[in-house]
Amino acid sequence: MNEIICLKDVTKTFKDKKAVDGVSFSIRQGEVAAILGPNGAGKTTTLSMMLGLLQPSSGTVKVLGENPNSRKVREKIGAMLQEVSVIDALTVKEVIQLFRSYYPEPLSFEELVNLSGLKEYELKKRAEKLSGGQKRRLSFALAMAGDPEVLFFDEPTVGMDIHSRKIFWQTVHLLKNRGKTIIFTTHYLQEADDTAERIILFHNGRLIEDGSPAEIKAKLTRKSVSFRKTEAINIKGLENLPHIQKVSVKGGRVHLETDDTDAVLSSLYKLNGFWKDIQVDSGRLEDAFEQLTEEKEAV
């Protein structure tokens, strides 16, 4: 498959601070990729470099095989930036028509209205008088104006209510089915997990994990088996059992962290007697995400 975006050893330094540090990855045609990370991880800076809004301090960024600033690239990409800005003194309809005129093969006006969910009465409103949610819809319509091959969304759902979020992600799925390549940033793990086929995890300007949500989950989550102990047992001894990574005691329960809960269960049954009320916890990705970012911060 075609490589749509390619970053090689990209570093961006602001004054003395490295916002992005030696990042390399590529995105293939038709992929839906989430750039995930806590605030300040370098997500927006990376996206801005892909859009040609910032130049990398070192390394190369190519979009569709070219410099992101080239006209050919601009004709084929669309983006929603984090701060939604609108031109003033023009109506929604006028702004959309203006943007359509920029592109060689724009989507029809009706289709843009449908995709963005803008209402008839909103089309006649002045763009600067729209509410936050309406501005988001307008900026989505503008991102789609040129029928782009590649779409960039920077924290697209910040400030959206639950209903708008749902509709937004449905539209993203629709676009994915049309073969668009979609890159979005988010600090909500759930969004990345639900929508993306691939998660690129950022922390402190570095790419720390890259893979499918399932792979990332498998790598990050810690499964565990826990039980209430019925008699004094040698906790240290449990550490020698196969597949056990860590043993801890919290609130009268013994927690055994493991990569294979089945194996731990069968060992426990063999030992028999001292346990009661066994629970298997497959590990929540949220916890893992938090843990991971905290751990890296501690290092």
Binding site: L53, I77, L81, I87, F99
Partner: peptide, 14 residues
């Protein structure tokens, strides 16, 4: 100030 000029840089309009 409102980020509009930045947004225009993404469009094909030079």
């Amino acid at each position: 100030a409102q980020g509009w000029s930045k947004f225009m840089k993404i469009t094909p309009l030079t």
